[in-house]
Design a protein around this nucleic acid. Structure first.
Lengths: 204, 204
DNA sequence: CCGGTAGTTTACTAAATAGTCAACTATCGG
DNA sequence: CCGATAGTTGACTATTTAGTAAACTACCGG
């Protein structure tokens, strides 16, 4: 059925990287097209605007992300370890990215969300959706840990909000400082927020 | 000594508000000039660029902020209460701003820092300086509280980092969600991070 | 192998934006 | 009240940017 293309995918990859390395406001459609090796005409063939492309890119990444989350939050893994694994994988990702781009980049959703939330409600809602989903995974692990008597957390959703506020806060600090140093305190910080009793975690 | 003017101050006020309401990348020099009631020629008479103006604006606000901090962190106030007061004043500010602008705006430095840190090192450094200063105030209170046996926090700087990561994280969540709701959990969250023993705080 | 469809390209317009400059004006000190 | 100084103005240029349109091309199904 006509000509085939992966230009759409290349555009999504390009905007993700550009936003992450720089910012949403400072990346132009021309830049996105250059990086994707796509002409502007094609850009507008697929997407109506930068905002629309960004939403599509987040959606696409979220699909892949879901598989990762399901692996990390496998019921086979003890609940508190799931949360620790989530943090570890997040930190490991920061290390890779620093390697690749020479910069600590933090959480793209949090950074982007805080940049554009007052200006682009469509994007804001999509970001909120993805962030919410992460919190729900965390809340479920918290609930389970509480039920198992590993921690005291009657309000699992509130605990999940607190954990993500802290975690995203540290990632953003790391981005601003351009330093991986602060990330090292995360496991300790997360456990202390969880109020984990010593040895409620299987030693890894 | 020639003609007098407060255009400089008006420009600084204008960029602050525009960045806060929107973002750094999306505010143009023309917009800043309009809001300040200043012609572009005058803008360039005072400042070499948007970045330079932003640095000046942060610097100026920081001067005023120092007085507030000194009041909040008065040695007359018990150390843990200083931290609680800092949080309360921060939250109260969010309520005012929501009133005024119809939006929750979060912390301008954190939002701006995470937006521009990879692109403008001068701005980044200035933001880092101000954020660091806040952390030092907090660390001093933590140190004192630890010395007084109110909390267990041998590494005051680390505790201060953790508190700010959490606090800024919640403020950013509030901005993204455009909701004051999440802020209500802050006092509780901060106290739990501090590991405050019950009644180590004088009841207000 | 051909026709329609999906995707590409180039060249274009209009608007927004950064930045410059020389002429102008108000104000302070003397 | 005058002259130097500090600040203002508007009109300008050059670029960058978003967005459009019409001709072109590759590919799949029949």
């Amino acid at each position: 059925m006509g000509r085939t293309s992966d230009a759409k995918e290349r555009l999504m990859a390009a905007i993700s990287e550009l936003i992450w390395i720089g910012s949403y406001g400072s990346t132009t459609i021309d830049q996105i097209c250059d990086k994707a090796g796509v002409k502007k005409g094609s850009f507008y063939y697929f997407f109506g605007s930068k905002s629309e492309l960004a939403v599509a890119a987040i959606e696409a990444e979220f699909c892949a992300r879901r598989a990762e989350l399901d692996a990390i939050f496998s019921p086979m893994v003890p609940p508190l370890e799931r949360i620790i694994r989530l943090c570890d994988s997040g930190c490991a990702r920061q290390v890779e990215l620093k390697e690749k781009f020479g910069q600590v980049l933090g959480c793209p959703l949090f950074t982007l969300g805080s940049e554009i939330c007052t200006q682009d409600n469509g994007l804001r809602e999509k970001i909120q959706e993805v962030l919410d989903c992460h919190q729900r995974y965390i809340a479920s692990a918290v609930r389970e840990a509480h039920a198992a008597g590993l921690i005291e957390a009657p309000d699992a959703a509130a605990k999940a909000r607190m954990l993500t506020a802290y975690f995203e806060g540290v990632l953003t600090q790391a981005r601003i400082l351009n330093s991986l140093e602060v990330l090292k305190e995360i496991p300790e910080g997360v456990l202390s927020i969880l109020g984990a009793k010593r040895q409620s975690l299987v030693p890894s």
